[in-house]
């Protein structure tokens, strides 16, 4: 009898030991988090892309004192050479031994951006034009082997903040991201209120984001707002949350 009882108890213990994982129970808002995070990643790429171009214009046009500061803060290991005979700006990396590896050229129409010029960044599919005082950046660039960013942005203002030692840019427009893997992921970002970018982060703006995954044809819509501290408040399928990256 005792044996039987012990056998039954040990069998029950064995059965209770069967749970080996809690699984991954998620809330719908976590999907929204994912979309927000991916949007943030791509907005930063676009903003950094703009920064890298505008900083050259600022470097070439500003007064010598500020020019030195910009160089020290942002272009320390770089070489920026403007060849006015060919209207070409060459950007390169300067090694410790003094040798330079040029990695980017910008074709200008003879004018700097601040003078209303048109710049075409070779190999990057980025063009910046001015028309009637409205500066427009058109981006058709491959970010990596799988993804492409297409954007048409209206640049409202840009500059270098001496006090913060930081580059600022404010822009609005539409950004379209395509990531091609086994299936296609797309992200359409419609800027409702201008994006403000400073000190390497976004500190303002409102966005309507639409995410689509071709395999399941899911369409998810997220509304995002940035506050001045870089926090993102977003709503997704009736859920709201705040996050910061």
């Amino acid at each position: 009898m005792k044996r039987t009882i012990f056998f039954c108890i040990s069998t029950l213990l064995l059965l209770t030991s069967c749970k080996v994982g809690n699984g991954e129970q998620r809330e719908p808002i976590e999907v929204g988090h994912g979309i927000v995070h991916w949007t943030e990643e791509n907005l930063m790429k676009v903003s950094n892309m703009l920064e890298s171009i505008f900083i050259i214009d600022l470097y070439l046009t500003t007064d010598p004192a500020l020019r030195e500061e910009i160089f020290d803060e942002r272009l320390k290991n770089s070489v920026v050479e403007y060849d006015t005979t060919t209207n070409t700006i060459m950007e390169g990396y300067r090694y410790v031994d003094g040798t330079v590896d040029y990695y980017r050229t910008i074709a200008t129409d003879g004018l700097l951006l601040s003078e209303g010029g048109t710049w075409r960044v070779n190999g990057q599919g980025t063009t910046i034009t001015s028309d009637g005082g409205v500066m427009t950046a058109t981006i058709n660039t491959r970010i990596d082997d799988n993804s492409q960013v297409d954007a048409k942005l209206r640049i409202e203002e840009y500059g270098y903040d001496k006090e913060k030692g930081a580059f600022d840019v404010k822009y609005d427009g539409d950004i379209y991201i395509v990531e091609q893997r086994e299936y296609t992921y797309t992200l359409s970002i419609d800027v409702v209120k201008s994006i403000e970018y400073t000190e390497g982060r976004i500190v303002g703006g409102e966005l309507d984001v639409e995410y689509n995954y071709s395999a399941t044809e899911h369409i998810d819509k997220v509304y995002m707002t940035y506050d001045k501290d870089g926090r993102i408040s977003f709503s997704y399928r009736g859920y709201t949350n705040t996050t910061q990256y």
Binding site: V31, G34, W38, R181, T216
Partner: peptide
């Protein structure tokens, strides 16, 4: 990595 993480969370 995003965006596959979005589908993972779904």
């Amino acid at each position: 990595d995003y965006p596959s993480a979005i589908e993972h969370r779904r």
